[in-house]
């Protein structure tokens, strides 16, 4: 029995808007195992980002509780790092200053040897003085991964990190994140709306349904690693994609908003 890293206990969230309250999460309970690669999959508006932001301590829940070990998460925790959509680098800082930000916020010296080896690992050595606008989308996202890993968190939360990238870069990034996970064995919670991306990366795929957001089903993905990119064209992989897609379609009618790829 593996250890539980994060425990989500009937997490419920309402957003108050002008047109009334939106029920974003409804009693979501989920255990994230230590060292696991967990993908949260769902159509837009299913509350998957809300769940992730709550796990990061950036959102407060209306009811329920999220725990890291024995600590309740109600504000950002140093053990948890978030990776955002579109890299989210600060455009007025060059790469090395962007990566130094988390250290700066804690008034610490950046761990330069760690940062250098991470930069080397993601092939960004030599780009330290470049500004985000001078880098491609993939490079920006790699820099943001370095920024998050530099502080050596034990949990990585990734909010559709590769959603804005083109398909080739996305494959590259998926391979990279798989390698990084295999090397570091950090607990990763990865939100996506791509079924094949979820299956490719995950140990377990959590499928969420919308309005209110709740967990529809959980799939174990036992494909051995390292998984090559072309695995996505193999019949058994496609069978899994169709199985998950089928369950989602079944749950919300024929018009599913989920991309197969």
């Amino acid at each position: 029995m593996t250890k539980i890293k994060m425990a989500i206990d009937s997490a419920t969230k309402f957003y108050e808007t002008r047109s009334g309250s939106v029920h974003a999460l409804d009693k979501v309970s989920l255990d994230v195992r230590e060292g696991e690669f967990l993908c949260i999959l769902g159509p837009s508006g299913c509350g998957k980002s809300t769940l992730l932001w709550s796990m990061a301590g950036l959102h407060s829940l209306s009811a329920g509780e999220i725990k890291l070990g024995s600590e309740t998460i109600n504000q950002p925790h140093p053990e948890i790092a978030m990776i955002f959509q579109d890299a989210n680098l600060l455009p007025w800082r060059n790469l090395s200053k962007n990566i130094a930000l988390p250290f700066e916020l804690k008034s610490k010296q950046p761990d330069q040897s760690r940062i250098n080896s991470l930069l080397e690992r993601v092939n960004l050595k030599g780009f330290e003085n470049k500004f985000p606008r001078e880098l491609s989308g993939g490079m920006q996202q790699r820099a943001s991964i370095v920024r998050s890993l530099a502080v050596d968190p034990s949990v990585l939360l990734m909010d559709e990190p590769f959603g804005a990238l083109d398909a080739f870069t996305r494959d590259e990034m998926n391979l990279l994140i798989q390698e990084i996970w295999m090397e570091t064995r950090k607990t990763i919670v990865f939100v996506t709306h791509s079924i094949s991306e979820a299956i490719f990366l995950a140990d377990r795929v959590v499928v969420m349904s919308a309005r209110p957001g709740r967990i529809a089903s959980i799939y174990d993905i036992d494909i051995p690693r390292p998984r090559p990119v072309d695995i996505q064209t193999r019949p058994d992989f496609i069978a899994r994609v169709l199985e998950i897609k089928g369950s989602i379609d079944h749950g919300r009618g024929a018009a599913a908003g989920l991309a197969i790829t």
Binding site: L58, P76, A81, F84, N88, L90, L101, L105, K106
Partner: peptide, 16 residues
């Protein structure tokens, strides 16, 4: 908001 959330996720104070 994403940039503010980023800073906050790394433990930034309101002043920071």
């Amino acid at each position: 908001l994403a940039k503010i959330a980023l800073a906050r996720s790394f433990g930034a104070s309101t002043l920071q």
